[in-house]
Amino acid sequence: MESRTPVRSGGFDPEYPIVTTRLLLRPITAGDAVTMHSYKSDPDAVRYVPYAPLTLDEVEQRIATTWSRTVFTTEGDGVCLAVEERESGALVGDVVLFWRSETDRAGEVGYIFAPRFSGRGYASEAVDALLALGFDGLGLHRIAARIDERNTASARVVERLGFRREARLVESEWFKEEWTTLLIYGLLETEWRGRSASMQ
Rank of each mutant, 00 (worst) to 15 (best):
E58K: 10
D32F: 07
P50R: 03
P50F: 02
L56Y: 07
A45F: 08
A52T: 13
D44A: 09
Y48E: 03
Y51V: 02
P43A: 02
M36K: 05
P50E: 08
Q61M: 04
E58T: 09
S38Q: 12
K40H: 12
L56A: 05
A52S: 14
S41D: 08
K40F: 10
E58V: 09
T55W: 02
Y39G: 08
Y51N: 10
A52N: 11
S38V: 12
Y48A: 01
R47D: 11
V34P: 02
V46A: 04
Q61N: 04
P50L: 08
V46K: 07
Y39P: 01
H37V: 14
D44C: 06
S38N: 05
V59T: 07
A64D: 14
T55V: 05
Q61V: 12
P43Y: 10
V46S: 03
L56N: 00
A52P: 11
M36E: 04
D57L: 12
T35Q: 03
A64N: 15
E58G: 06
V49G: 05
V49R: 02
D44W: 09
M36H: 01
A64I: 00
R47S: 12
E60C: 14
Y51Q: 00
M36F: 07
D44P: 04
K40Y: 06
D42E: 09
V49A: 12
P43T: 05
P53I: 05
E60I: 10
I63V: 13
S41T: 02
P53E: 08
S41P: 01
E60L: 07
D32Q: 07
